[in-house]
Design a protein around this nucleic acid. Structure first.
Lengths: 132, 132
DNA sequence: GTCCATATACTCGGATAGAGGTTGTCCGAGTTGTTCGGG
DNA sequence: CCCGAACAACTCGGACAACCTCTATCCGAGTATATGGAC
């Protein structure tokens, strides 16, 4: 059980886009170079963020990606759900059987984590960002 | 990012062992049959619980698995860590670089979940258990 | 009855293997801005 | 100067592959109990 590297790339990219905060889109090559990933792969991840309407893309020359919503509203959870999916981390008996006590405990624990991720917005980190 | 089925099997097995609460060990066949898993596979999972000293095994006829510690002390987190490992869910820049803000947020969120799992002991569920 | 060999019922651990997810790469297609040549 | 064609830069999306983990099975080895026969 681990968060995928894709999530890491997505979070760092979003943090960077929030800190730039420009109207001009940023090319995927530039974003990829900063993190030492191949542009093709990063583009695949960013597509998920586009579908989640966190960012938007513009094609053609001088194209790239740029924030869609206000960066005050973007939480960690938004990004993680966009990349990892929003399914529950734990599934007990195949179906979503809510009678299982174990399932209930796990769900409550997961919600504790998600609350924390939802309350932390991207903008809070913009100034203090290291480890680009 | 999902908890493995092995974790599910481990939790259910531990819950059952806690509810039986007998000195006599329970055979892996019986445990496996209750959950619809193959005994060979379950045995492999239980080996991890033995190494974590949550349960102990006795070989030979009438052998099997039985709780080692007091069931008041066994938390969800103990079991999960035994099966999934206790590594952090999120690793930012390869090494454990604690300067990364993103890493810090993720770590704090993870700790929120772990606190919940640590505070929930097996014994709390013994009576109300369904979904064996 | 006692002792020992054998059978029986278990766990333990390694080898193996398929399924599925993760992490990438590659390439063709479509889109936009730029450049350049003809009128 | 103006228009259009060609070009370059860029994203989009699918196909594909290498790799790893998860899930699971199988089997041989070791171990503890039960059985049963010889004395």
């Amino acid at each position: 059980m681990k968060y995928s590297k894709a999530t890491n790339y997505a979070l760092h990219t979003m943090l960077y886009l929030c800190s730039v905060s420009s109207d001009k889109p940023v090319g995927v090559q530039q974003l990829a170079q900063k993190q030492g990933v191949s542009p093709s792969y990063l583009s695949k991840i960013l597509t998920k963020l586009v579908k989640a309407e966190l960012i938007e893309s513009s094609s053609g020359a001088n194209g790239g990606y740029r924030l869609k919503g206000r960066k005050e509203d973007i939480s960690f959870l938004d990004i993680i759900h966009a990349v990892e999916g929003s399914a529950s981390l734990f599934e007990c008996c195949g179906s979503e059987d809510s009678r299982c006590v174990i399932q209930q405990v796990m769900l409550a624990a997961e919600e504790a984590m998600e609350r924390h991720l939802e309350n932390t917005k991207m903008i809070e980190l913009v100034d203090t960002s290291s480890c680009d």
